[in-house]
């Protein structure tokens, strides 16, 4: 059972952002989605997570159609995501940012939590234990009681991924996780993403950083003008002249792609930092 896009399409008026994309994503693997700016990579993630509506076609996870569900229902079906521009709950602590993810399972006991303190503390302890485990995995345990908004940028990225992973999702969608990170942080990110790999999980990464994608992904999808241009292993993608043409207009070597990615990363770094 897998995540399947079937003739997936997204139109904004006359503009076709995603043009009949059909693809399937097997569990246990890390899937990379690459392509030039405006190729529709983030749109794919946003449609899968329910942030954008689907114009036609379908998204099916383990035989269940996701495209007709509401965003929170999709999340409860096991799809977790991060955002291109970090979206944490800034004024909540790092720990609370993770704790709140247990809302769908624990909300039924709210009144019991209010009226019966021992129940509340046992529930809270159980939740926090799971959260601390994830925080330790991301080396964030020292920041557990700090406000999320006050963390350094790199830690915020990590925390957002931790938040996506805390409920052990079936599908993990990462929208440019390396944007704005320095070399050191990118290396850390690559290691952690490799370590979170599990046989049941479908990980999809949209990213401009070719080093990260090539090192991490088992399967790469290349998007171009909303269409699926190429699909294959990193080695196959690097060898493909189609891909190079799409990226640069002329056949050229991978170093230029890397330079473009660096550029993009620097831009995003400025943009996202200015916001906070």
């Amino acid at each position: 059972m897998t995540l399947v896009f079937d003739r997936l399409r997204k139109e904004y008026g006359q503009v076709v952002a995603i043009d009949d994309v059909t693809a399937s994503f097997a569990p246990g693997l890390i899937h990379g989605v690459i392509g030039p700016n405006g190729a529709g990579k983030s749109t794919l993630i946003n449609m899968t997570a329910g942030s954008y509506t689907v114009s036609s076609g379908s998204i099916v996870l383990d035989g269940k159609r996701l495209d007709r569900l509401k965003k929170y229902q999709i999340a409860n079906s096991g799809v977790a995501r991060t955002y291109q521009n970090i979206r944490l709950f800034d004024q909540m602590t790092t720990l609370e940012n993770l704790e709140v993810c247990f809302y769908p399972t624990d909300v039924g006991g709210t009144w019991k939590e209010v009226l019966w303190p021992p129940y509340a503390s046992s529930r809270r302890d159980r939740r926090r234990e799971k959260c601390m485990e994830i925080l330790r995995f991301f080396d964030l345990q020292g920041h557990a009681d700090a406000e999320a908004g006050s963390l350094p940028y790199g830690r915020q990225r990590m925390l957002e991924i931790a938040r996506a992973l805390v409920c052990n999702p079936r599908v993990l969608l990462l929208d440019e996780p390396a944007a704005g990170l320095n070399h050191h942080e990118t290396a850390e990110l690559t290691a952690r993403l490799a370590a979170q790999r599990s046989p049941d999980r479908i990980t999809i990464i949209v990213e401009h950083d070719m080093d990260l994608v090539m090192a991490l992904c088992d399967n790469i999808i290349v998007m171009h003008h909303g269409k699926l241009l190429f699909q294959g292993t990193p080695a196959e993608v690097q060898a493909s002249t189609d891909v190079q043409l799409a990226y640069l207009g002329t056949a050229n070597d991978i170093d230029d792609i890397r330079a473009a990615a660096q550029d993009r990363r620097a831009q995003l770094g400025i943009r996202t930092r200015r916001r906070s």
Binding site: N46, S51, Y52, N85, R87, D90, R275
Partner: peptide, 10 residues
């Protein structure tokens, strides 16, 4: 206005 395109975060 689509949810995700709102400029301001909060």
């Amino acid at each position: 206005v689509s949810e995700e395109s709102i400029v301001y975060k909060r």
